[in-house]
Design a protein around this nucleic acid. Structure first.
Length: 315
DNA sequence: CTCCAGGACACTT
DNA sequence: AAGTGTCATGGA
């Protein structure tokens, strides 16, 4: 295994709330880097990223990533952290008048970015997310990487630092369900579904690049995802939002249901979440949030609800 | 022991 | 098509 030297990139990431962004529960491969203060450590593809906050609006990034052809590392960061999206567009101007209490509460969270993450990694990660807590989801994802991902070692602070990439579709497709269940919270059905999805991607039957293409209608993309065993509307919407960069996708889970009822007085939100009700709630949301970026905005509400109201700390 | 955690699916009406 | 029950499993 090769040891690469990290190089330093100074980037002015104005308006990027790093802690909120990385711990908002959308990415399961970012964590605190305990050796340095205010520093976060993430794995994107084969590369390690160490991001340290410097002052209020700026941070230092160290990464193993080499600038690709025609793309600088800063370009990549801009894309990955969605710095091209102006968060002021997320909420209608009237929002603060209609929901002053919510508006006040979300102020510290309005800088949060939805990350444009790798489609396959997100596909599998959110398949691990049905009916489980955030902590266990993270555990599953890191176990998958540890068991089947490519191992890398780099020098960090003059010491070797080891991390694993997320497994490729081919590797996961070839995995054995009985051994994979140790990565899926001991759930054999989930292990099977994940292998099946990996096979679909590896064989080209499920073309993630195609799903990512804005030319493909949203509903068509969602339908293709839901055709996979183990993926319903909710997980499909998560994949669309975080992995396929469709910021209109608005996943509704137990927390979203709670805030839809508490903050926006949508009483149907407390009824059972049937498919019909799920779609009905999404329709209601489209009249509250900018439909084009509803999922992006929803993620800010999601994070704020969990932290400010539920006082949850695990992300 | 009970309840909850970023649901999905088969099985009735 | 729409509603209801069942499955699954570790952690608080």
């Amino acid at each position: 295994m090769s040891i690469k030297n990290l190089y330093r990139l100074d980037a002015n990431l104005e308006g990027l709330n790093i802690e909120g962004t990385l711990f908002s529960g959308q990415s399961f491969r970012w964590d605190n880097y305990d050796e340095e203060k205010n520093t976060f450590c993430g794995i994107i593809g084969d590369d390690l990223f160490i991001i340290q906050r410097v002052g209020r609006a700026s941070c230092t990034i160290r990464t193993t990533k080499n600038p690709g052809q025609g793309e600088t590392t800063k370009d990549f960061i801009t894309y990955y952290f969605s710095l091209d999206i102006d968060n002021k567009r997320l909420f209608h101007p009237e929002f603060s008048e209609h929901y002053p209490h919510v508006w006040q509460l979300i102020q510290p969270y309005t800088f949060i970015k939805v990350l444009r993450q790798d489609a396959f990694e997100i596909l599998i990660s959110f398949m691990c997310a049905q009916g489980l807590g955030m902590r266990i989801i993270r555990k599953q994802v890191s176990e998958l990487a540890r068991l089947l991902g490519k191992k890398h070692t780099v020098t960090l602070n003059n010491k070797p630092f080891t991390y694993n990439s997320f497994p490729t579709p081919e590797t996961l497709a070839a995995a054995d369900p009985e051994s994979l269940r140790f990565c899926t919270n001991n759930n054999c059905i989930r292990a099977k579904n994940i292998i099946n999805a990996a096979k679909s991607v590896a064989s080209g039957r499920l073309d993630l690049k195609n799903l990512c293409d804005p030319e493909m209608p949203f509903e068509t993309a969602r339908k293709q995802l839901c055709a996979q065993p183990g993926i319903g509307y909710k997980i499909a919407d998560c994949i669309l939002l975080f992995g396929l960069h469709r910021f209109s996708a608005f996943p509704i889970d137990t927390h979203v249901r709670q805030y839809l009822a508490a903050w926006f007085s949508i009483k149907e939100s407390l009824q059972s979440l049937t498919q019909k009700n799920y779609l009905f709630l999404q329709k209601q949301v489209s009249s509250i949030l900018n439909p084009e970026l509803a999922g992006f905005a929803g993620h800010i509400l999601f994070h704020c609800w969990r932290k400010e109201v539920k006082h949850l700390t695990s992300f």
